[in-house]
Amino acid sequence: MTDASTSTPPRRMRLNFHVFGPLLAMVAVMVIGASLNLSFLSPENLTNVAARSAFIGIIAVGMTFVITAGGIDLSVGAMAAFVAGVMIMVMNALVPVMGAGVPLIMVGMATALLVGGAAGMLNGVLIAKVRIEAFIVTLGSMGIYRSLVTWLADGGTLSLDFTLRGVYRPVYYEGILGLSWPIIVFAIVAILGELAMRHTAYGRHCAAIGANEQVAVYSAVKVARVRMATYVVLGMLVGLATIMYVPRLGSASGNTGVLWELEAIAAVIIGGTVLKGGFGRVWGTVIGVLILSLIGNILNLASIVSPYLNGAIQGVIVILAVVLQRESKSAD
């Protein structure tokens, strides 16, 4: 044991750097943030950032599995808006029947999970069974869901019934031990995702399909079923994210969730998952999501550059984070 570890110290160091690349990037971002503005490290600010990361984060965990299995889902942002719209309409419609109380919120939550799961199932069937390119299927469903929510809202905004907002509001704004519910749910989803990716047959099958589909077929992996499951789970996670999102502002419109899909995909890649599939890292995705949110937060807190350049800075850091990993990977 001791011999082995002392004989290969350089390799181990490189390996560590490769593994912890995203983590180091996040620490670097946090150091920069703290040096620019003292209130950056205040618990209030950090919980704000964690809570606003939760929507994209929950979705990005599901996206990690989809991408690991060699797929992609561009429809999640539009799907979130659509699920939010349907959820709000169902809840508003049931207020006279059920009254504004916890049972109605439960019905709303179940609706979100069901609609999300069904939407994911639709993507999954077209991709895994009908065998259409994931990019095309989800590009199409992105347009469909985005139009549907605009149509449902009649071009305006769907707002949650005012009496319900008070009942539902704590789901975003309150929690236990100073951690709000979105943070707790995000953490649970991330931990379960990490366990599923590392320690279950499902996680290994996803990686096998993404690495080489033919080999996976010959290894008796039920490719279509696993692939479909990744989209259904992602759809349900979109539903879960929506459950956390709706109580924040109590509304949905055609503008909800715009570009969430790209943020989620970027977070997955920053976290070290390979875009063409075969290898996925859920905890890396979590770090990726946090890095993206922290950058936005720091730019708001510091206002060192013209706000016109915020997008450029985000872009540079995203590319840098990935370049960093590529280099350490080739060094392996």
Binding site: N37, S39, S42, E44, N45, N48, R52, R248, L249, S251, S253, N255, T256, V258, G296, N297, N300, L301, S303, P307, Y308, N310
Partner: peptide, 23 residues
């Protein structure tokens, strides 16, 4: 104190305002 772009969007405005309030 500061001007930032909320892009005529509720979510963006919420985020920007949260950060203004911490700052």
């Amino acid at each position: 104190l500061d001007m930032q772009h909320g892009n005529w969007n509720r979510d963006d405005a919420f985020t920007v305002m949260q950060d203004f309030l911490s700052r």
